[in-house]
């Protein structure tokens, strides 16, 4: 996982799919990067290289989102693959992840 600070926002680029087989390792990496950048005002999860995500991967992203809530950091996901975006939308995570403007209420 690549990480760099960009104008106060910590960009975390996932290197590939986010699956049950690698979430434990990614969780450690995320904690490590957060600890290394205590001044970050927000987090961007760059999903460009993730083509698939399973329920444990989803769990990890939600944990990251909850972590940001807890630390009062902004959070958004960026550039998810279409199928991942569809999943976020279907589970109403897209708005939480800053991917979809809220629909106008009728």
């Amino acid at each position: 996982m690549q990480a760099h600070l960009d104008h106060g926002t910590l960009r975390l680029a996932f290197a590939g799919d986010i699956l049950s087989t690698n979430v434990a390792q990614q969780r450690v990496a995320l904690l490590s990067h957060l600890a290394a950048h205590p001044t970050a005002a927000g987090i961007v999860a760059d999903l460009t290289h993730a083509r698939a995500i399973d329920s444990q991967g989803l769990n990890l992203l939600i944990a990251l989102y909850r972590e940001c809530e807890r630390r009062q950091l902004s959070f958004r996901a960026e550039n998810p693959a279409p199928e991942i975006l569809r999943l976020f939308i279907a589970l109403k995570l897209a708005e939480r992840f800053g991917l979809q403007p809220a629909l106008a209420s009728p």
Binding site: R27, L30, L34, I62, R66, E67
Partner: peptide
């Protein structure tokens, strides 16, 4: 509609 139980997920730790 769908609703995911986010309350069951804690932080990264």
């Amino acid at each position: 509609d769908t609703a995911l139980d986010l309350g069951s997920v804690g932080g990264l730790e």
